[in-house]
Amino acid sequence: MDKVITADDAVVGIADGASIAVGGFGLCGIPTTLIAAVQRTGVSDLQVVSNNCGVDDWGLGPLLADHRIARATSSYVGENKEFARQYLSGELEVELCPQGSLAERLRAGGCGIPAFYTPAGVGTQIAEGGLPWRYAADGTVMVASPAKETREFAGRPHVLEEAIVTDFALVAAAKGDRHGNLVFDKSARNFNPLCAMAGRITIAEVEDLVEPGEIAPDDIHLPGVFVQYVVHAPGVEKRIEKRTVSNPGAAA
């Protein structure tokens, strides 16, 4: 039951072309230790599922800059200039998905639900197809999204979204025990539990590693049944995506 290993040992099974769900929202709650370990392996052609792709020099940004990511399923990618460049130049395939739908697709994958209907995306290219997934070098669309099944419920149209299940999941937690039970800190809870549920093999980095029984059952945000490996990662650097400060003298 002791699932604690090193970061490098935890990611050794990730091979070229693997699909990986990565927790975090912006730079909040991202598994930086595990991402760095993946980068050290040299694997490429990764298919990443993450709300966003970090910034140019942090989060998933370094993997992207090294051309290790072949495909990204994301909601918000506007803070990464290299992401935009690779997408528009045809180097990266991108599936954009409404944020709530992405969250539910991950949760559904972890619950064994193959698909679900949602009103999000009805009347747009999300439902009707034609959203550019990959561009050619000349700027034309090489791969476009397919049309999705729609159906009315209570007189309102809904689009069918398929669940997401990935080969691996990388998540970050504030506290965890050796059995893989996890506690997330405030907004860092974001996509982490959902990604953990969606991964066939889930690796969690935890800042505070405790012994089994030290976390009260009612305080556990994600039970250890979803986690295969635990990596102790204290003192991880945390960056702010956009720092906004006020100028007290401005009003005067």
Rank of each mutant, 00 (worst) to 15 (best):
I20L: 13
L88K: 11
A7P: 13
P114S: 07
Y229D: 00
E241M: 12
E128R: 09
V230C: 06
G17Q: 10
A120R: 02
E95I: 12
S89T: 12
D8M: 10
D8R: 12
I126P: 05
N52T: 08
V165P: 10
M142L: 15
V231P: 13
S89I: 00
L102G: 09
C97V: 15
G112Q: 03
I14H: 10
I30V: 15
V206L: 06
A251K: 14
F184H: 04
D8C: 02
A250P: 02
R40K: 15
G24P: 07
I201K: 10
T33N: 03
I35A: 09
R68N: 02
W133K: 14
G24V: 04
G235Q: 06
T33W: 01
L46N: 05
K3D: 08
I113D: 04
V43E: 10
V225H: 11
K238E: 13
A196F: 08
G139D: 08
L194K: 05
A127K: 01
G110D: 06
S50A: 15
A250E: 08
A115F: 03
Q228S: 15
V49A: 09
T33E: 05
Y76L: 13
A108Q: 05
N52R: 03
T166E: 11
P234Y: 01
R178N: 07
A252M: 05
V11G: 12
Y117H: 06
I201E: 13
G100Q: 02
T124F: 10
D66C: 10
R68I: 01
S145I: 07
A169H: 06
L102Y: 05
V122F: 10
G224Y: 02
P157L: 09
L102V: 08
G54K: 02
G180Y: 10
V171S: 10
L182M: 15
A233H: 11
P193E: 08
E161K: 02
V12C: 12
G29F: 07
P234L: 01
P98L: 02
A120K: 01
G109R: 08
S145F: 08
A188F: 02
R68L: 00
I35F: 08
V231F: 08
R134A: 14
G13Q: 15
D56V: 11
V245R: 13
K242V: 04
D56C: 04
K186R: 13
G155N: 02
E207N: 14
A65P: 00
P146R: 04
Y117T: 04
V225R: 12
V141S: 05
W133L: 15
N247W: 14
Q39N: 10
K81F: 09
E241I: 03
V48T: 01
E128I: 01
Q228F: 09
T32G: 12
S50H: 04
G235M: 03
K3H: 08
A36C: 01
V183H: 03
A172Y: 14
S50D: 01
G123S: 03
P31E: 09
R40L: 11
Q47K: 15
A70Y: 02
L131C: 14
S50E: 01
D185R: 04
D185H: 13
R243G: 11
L222W: 06
Q125K: 12
A250C: 04
T32L: 05
R243M: 12
C195I: 04
S145Q: 11
P146W: 00
A21R: 01
A115I: 00
I240Q: 03
A216G: 06
D177T: 07
A127M: 01
L222V: 07
G249M: 10
R40H: 14
I220M: 00
V141T: 11
D16Y: 02
G180Q: 07
